[in-house]
């Protein structure tokens, strides 16, 4: 069912929704961008629908709402570890198809990997509902179509922002009541069907080939280009790694907090252990690890789909202009070359 409504009416509905939901959307933080006099667009709670930045891609994804950057796990004393709490408010999140598809990857990591669920993820994820935002023609770094993540039906509401009014599709029965007074129209959201950027995925079909991929010269090029800052992983909707640490409020009383913060496989200390041992010492090796996780490992493990959804934020955020889309295509070319060489070797024998 679709509705046409004014921004004023939508804001009244927003007020009603906010009795049960915290409503998050990509918002503008003026002057808070990486460079001076640039803006930061990231998720935050909104007070009015006009605050939603719908015509630009956000710098950060909505994952921070259900997988907070810093999340207290326990408050501890000498006697007990008490689990941190969250309130009962639902989470209503304005999100794009790639992000909604990306959150399904997070679901896989937090809820399906291993034989147990991460209850901290679960308790926020269960409360989350999505308001799909149309992408229009998309942006120059997007490659969602190549990754098959340009479409989704996993949303409660969908919205099209027009200059003087909004079109809303209500897909989830639970939200129908908010729109009962509105004018009905035909509206279903449109999805991007092509991107300026196409990505060809590598088809690595043997461990012998994978070994050769590990040893490719192309990774070494990134030793000088990649600064290991981790901006790509922070921006990524599907990066799910974290580090747990303890914060001691009072050293003597051993009272404190156990919390987790996002971690990045691009950072030098990602694999570092107390004894000084670590792995993947070079930026190129770490970038290889990230690349294969996004376009090989995850699928090898969970079968259904690649981890990367092609949101392109890693490309947008890389201060060194390393394009992940380009890496994927280069890798595919190299894999094709390796396969050809292997088949020639066989033929030559």
């Amino acid at each position: 069912m679709g509705y046409s409504l004014s921004y004023g009416r939508m804001n009244e509905i927003l007020k009603e929704l906010q009795q049960n939901y915290r409503v998050y959307a990509p918002r503008r933080w003026a002057g808070r961008g990486r460079y001076s006099d640039t803006d930061l667009i990231r998720y935050g709670e909104i007070a009015a629908v006009e605050e939603v930045v719908h015509d630009e891609k956000s710098d950060f994804s909505p994952k921070e709402i259900i997988f907070p950057i810093t999340q207290p796990l326990f408050y501890f004393t000498e006697d007990e570890y008490r689990e941190s709490r969250v309130d009962d408010q639902g989470l209503l999140i304005f999100a794009r198809p790639c992000d909604i598809n990306g959150i399904r990857r997070l679901d896989t990591m937090f809820l399906k990997n291993g034989d147990s669920e991460d209850s901290y993820y679960r308790r926020l994820r269960d409360k989350a509902r999505f308001v799909l935002m149309e992408c229009g023609t998309g942006w120059d770094t997007c490659f969602c179509v190549s990754m098959g993540s340009n479409r989704t039906s996993d949303y409660s509401l969908a919205v099209r922002f027009l200059p003087d009014h909004l079109l809303v599709e209500v897909r989830d029965e639970a939200f129908k009541r908010y729109f009962s007074q509105e004018r009905e129209v035909e509206f279903t959201p449109e999805f991007v069907t092509s991107n300026p950027r196409t990505v060809r995925l590598p088809e690595i079909d043997s461990s012998g080939l994978l070994r050769k991929v590990y040893d490719l010269e192309m990774w070494k090029e990134y030793n000088s280009r990649c600064q290991s800052c981790g901006a790509c992983t922070a921006a990524c909707i599907t990066c799910s790694c974290f580090t747990t640490s303890d914060l001691i409020y009072n050293e003597n009383a051993r009272v404190g907090e156990r919390r987790r913060v996002w971690a990045s496989c691009l950072h030098e200390d990602f694999t570092a252990m107390a004894g000084g041992l670590g792995f993947r010492a070079t930026p190129g090796e770490r970038l290889r690890f990230r690349t294969l996780h996004k376009v090989y490992d995850y699928k090898a493990r969970f079968k259904e789909e690649q981890m990367c959804v092609g949101c392109g934020r890693c490309d947008d955020r890389c201060p060194e202009f390393i394009s992940f889309a380009t890496i994927i295509n280069r890798l595919s070319d190299e894999v094709e070359r390796l396969k050809k060489e292997a088949s020639q070797e066989v033929a030559g024998q």
């Binding site: 933080w29 808070r32 961008g33 922070a234 996002w262 955020r317």
Partner: peptide
């Protein structure tokens, strides 16, 4: 100098406008 804001991967450091 603002180097902290330039390098911060998560936007934890930002410039006061």
């Amino acid at each position: 100098c603002g180097e902290c804001a330039l390098v911060c991967p998560t936007g934890a450091w930002t410039r006061n406008p």
